[in-house]
Amino acid sequence: MQILNVFLVIFLIVAAIMVERTKDLLSAVIIFTSYSLMMALLWLLLRAPDVAMTEAAIGAGITTNLFVVVISRTRRTEK
């Protein structure tokens, strides 16, 4: 189980760096969504199911929808 936690933390670090480095905003939102889902899984493994459900609902659900709506109303790529 410890190896899975280490893998998830490494994934979270890589995903955070990738979100910051990518120029395509929709790709950044997709990476951020995967970050939120992995964070929810990590909270679940740490025996915090209430925090995991909140992270999944707000972080991966509502925030992703808001970002996609905003991107659809603006330009998709950064200058």
Rank of each mutant, 00 (worst) to 15 (best):
F67K: 12
S72G: 05
R75S: 13
I13Q: 08
A15I: 00
V9I: 11
W43Q: 06
T54A: 08
L26N: 09
M53N: 13
T63W: 07
A16N: 10
M53A: 11
N65A: 14
L46M: 06
I3T: 15
T22N: 08
Y35V: 00
I10K: 01
V51Q: 02
I3P: 02
A28E: 03
A48T: 15
L12Q: 00
F11L: 13
I31Y: 03
I13C: 04
G61F: 01
M53C: 11
K79W: 15
V29A: 10
I10S: 02
V69H: 08
I30N: 00
L37K: 01
V51I: 06
R73H: 12
G61R: 03
I31E: 04
S34I: 06
M39C: 09
V69K: 10
T33Q: 02
R73T: 07
L8Y: 04
L44D: 00
F11I: 11
L25S: 02
G59R: 04
A28D: 05
F32E: 04
A15R: 03
E55H: 01
M38R: 01
L12A: 03
L44S: 02
S72N: 13
P49C: 14
I58F: 09
T54H: 07
S72E: 11
A60I: 02
V68H: 02
L45V: 08
L41K: 06
A57N: 07
T22V: 13
F7D: 12
R73E: 11
M18T: 11
A52C: 02
R75P: 14
N5T: 13
A16H: 09
T74E: 04
P49T: 07
L4S: 10
M1Q: 14
S72Q: 12
T33M: 00
L46E: 10
